[in-house]
Amino acid sequence: MFYPNSPQTSPQLTQIPYGQQYAMMQRQIQQPYHPFATTEPQARLYPYHYQGPIQQEQGGFITQQSTAASPQYVQMRVTPVDQSIMSGYPNQTANGSSSSSFNYNIHPQQQQQQQQQQQQLRHHAMPVGSVPLQDDRYRKQLIVNYLAPDVTSTDLHELFSRFGELDGARIIYDKQTNMSKGYGFVYFCHAEDAKEAVERMSGYEFHGKWLKVGYSTNPLNIVPSNSSPYVHAGSRGAAG
């Protein structure tokens, strides 16, 4: 039997160049792979992502010199942007860049009308829970959420009447099932009393439920100042 490094198959040491006398086997001759043993700084910083320098080929596509990437890492192929796409944008300079302001050559009167329309939209648009300043009635009506099913309009009136005089209180019921929808409205005579009720009743436990109280901004629920107070009856038909 002959071994790869046996004296019968191995040459004389004098015939082997210096430095390879003890590297006779194939696994010894093959050098191990060192990912950080390279002179390129990109490979030292990113050993798993770097795959060699990027070269520009004919046709405008950018390719990489090395083989496919590892399945664990996804390499994105980048193509140059066609400058003709950006030619339609206004205020574009000769080098292809555009300024931040756009001039669509709008007539001054049209621009003024658009600004007025935007101001009107901001004036009428009102986020949930906010209180408008032009109508004091919005500051007097509250919406009470997360009410228990057994709470009546009379219970709601008695709960909030300790903060001040009320114009009314009612629970909203479903017309088909005649069941409470879980929320109601309270109408105060003074805005200061309503503000105190919002601050003190939010998070209050009532009939096993934690109440959420806020201003009601729905104009359909506003009680006119010259109208008669609501009837605080315990029956659902009268309260709904």
Rank of each mutant, 00 (worst) to 15 (best):
S70F: 15
P47T: 14
G164S: 01
D150L: 02
M86Q: 03
P71C: 09
T63L: 15
S227I: 08
A125R: 05
D167Q: 10
H123R: 11
N95F: 15
M76V: 13
Q115C: 05
V78F: 15
V74A: 11
S99V: 14
Q111W: 15
T154I: 09
F36I: 02
V131M: 14
Q64V: 15
T217L: 04
F102M: 09
E40L: 10
K212W: 00
D167W: 06
Q83H: 11
G59D: 04
M76D: 07
Y138D: 02
P47L: 15
M86D: 05
Q92H: 06
A233T: 06
M201E: 01
G52L: 14
Q28N: 14
G129L: 03
Q56L: 13
N221I: 13
P11W: 15
P219W: 00
Y138Q: 03
E199G: 08
P17F: 14
S10Y: 14
P90I: 14
P229A: 15
A233I: 08
I85F: 07
Q65V: 14
C189A: 07
A197D: 01
L142Y: 10
Q116W: 14
A23G: 13
D135N: 05
Q141E: 01
V131Y: 14
R200V: 08
T217N: 12
G240A: 09
F188N: 01
I29F: 15
L220I: 13
Y146I: 00
Q31M: 12
N145G: 00
D193C: 14
F185I: 00
G52S: 06
M76K: 03
Q119D: 03
Q51A: 08
L166C: 03
G60C: 14
D174G: 01
Y22H: 12
I106W: 11
P224I: 05
F163H: 02
T79Q: 10
G59E: 02
R122Y: 09
T39H: 14
G60I: 15
D193Y: 04
S216P: 00
Y183Q: 00
I85K: 06
H124Q: 12
H49T: 10
R44N: 06
C189R: 09
S97I: 08
P35E: 05
D174C: 09
Y18P: 06
V74W: 13
G214F: 01
K175L: 05
V144K: 00
Y230C: 05
R139I: 11
P132Q: 12
G59C: 15
P32G: 11
A194T: 03
K195G: 11
E158M: 14
N105V: 14
G129N: 04
P17K: 02
G60W: 15
I16T: 04
K181M: 02
V74R: 01
Y89V: 07
Q113W: 15
N178H: 14
N178I: 07
A169Y: 01
Q42V: 13
S202D: 02
N145K: 01
M86N: 01
Y46F: 10
E196T: 12
G240H: 14
S228C: 11
R122E: 04
G59I: 15
W210C: 02
P229H: 14
L13Y: 14
Q118T: 06
Q28D: 15
P7A: 11
V186Q: 01
A68V: 12
H124D: 11
S100G: 12
Y215E: 00
D82I: 14
Q31P: 09
Y22E: 11
T217E: 01
P90N: 11
Q75W: 15
V213P: 02
P149E: 02
Q75P: 07
R162C: 13
Q72N: 09
S216W: 00
Q141S: 00
V128I: 10
D136G: 08
A197F: 07
V128Q: 11
Q15D: 07
S66C: 12
M86G: 04
E40F: 10
Q109A: 11
G59N: 11
G184N: 04
Y33L: 05
P53Q: 08
I171R: 01
G208C: 10
S235I: 02
A148C: 04
M201L: 05
P47N: 10
E199F: 04
Y48G: 05
F102W: 12
Y204Q: 05
G168F: 02
L220K: 15
P108Y: 15
Y173F: 10
A238N: 11
T152E: 08
Y22G: 11
Q114D: 06
S130N: 11
R236A: 05
E158F: 14
A169T: 10
Q112C: 05
S130L: 01
N103R: 10
K140S: 04
T154H: 11
N5L: 12
H190V: 02
M126V: 10
Q120M: 12
Q64C: 13
P35I: 14
W210S: 01
S202I: 05
G164T: 01
G203E: 02
M25V: 06
K140P: 01
Q42G: 06
Y50S: 05
W210I: 03
T67P: 06
L45A: 12
A191Q: 03
H49K: 02
A125Y: 11
F102P: 06
P32V: 12
A148S: 08
K140V: 00
N95R: 06
Q8K: 08
G88H: 05
S98D: 11
G234Y: 03
Q72L: 14
M201T: 02
V144Y: 04
V151I: 02
D135V: 03
S87V: 14
P90T: 09
Q119E: 02
V131K: 05
E196F: 11
L211K: 00
L166H: 06
T63Y: 14
G240C: 14
P35T: 12
Y89S: 03
H34I: 05
H124P: 12
P132S: 12
S97W: 14
A23P: 10
P108D: 05
Y146R: 01
S161W: 09
F163L: 04
F188L: 03
K195T: 10
Q20S: 11
S130A: 09
V78S: 04
Y73A: 08
P80G: 02
L133Q: 05
T38N: 08
Q15S: 11
V81A: 03
P149V: 05
N221M: 12
E158K: 06
D174P: 03
A94D: 08
P7V: 11
A125W: 14
G208D: 03
Y46P: 03
G88F: 14
N226P: 06
S161L: 09
V231H: 03
A233K: 03
M24R: 05
K212F: 00
F185M: 00
Q72K: 05
P90D: 09
Q109M: 14
V74Q: 10
V198T: 05
E165P: 13
S70C: 10
V81M: 13
N178A: 11
Y204D: 01
S227Q: 04
Q75H: 08
D136A: 07
I171H: 03
K140L: 01
L45Y: 06
E205Y: 14
S225M: 13
V78Y: 14
Q20C: 05
S66Q: 09
Y22A: 11
Y3S: 05
R77A: 09
P71N: 05
Y146M: 00
Y204P: 00
Y46M: 03
S161T: 09
D135Y: 11
V213W: 01
G88Q: 05
Y215D: 00
P41F: 10
Q42N: 09
G60P: 10
L142W: 05
G60V: 14
Q72M: 13
H34P: 11
H49G: 14
L142E: 01
Y46A: 07
S225N: 12
I85H: 10
F61C: 11
Y3I: 04
Q72C: 13
Q65P: 10
T63H: 10
D155T: 09
P35C: 15
M76T: 05
Y183C: 00
Q134L: 09
N91P: 11
S130Q: 13
I106P: 06
V223S: 04
N145F: 00
L166F: 07
S97Y: 15
S153R: 15
H157T: 06
Q119I: 12
H207V: 01
R137E: 02
Q28I: 09
V74C: 14
M201K: 00
N105H: 08
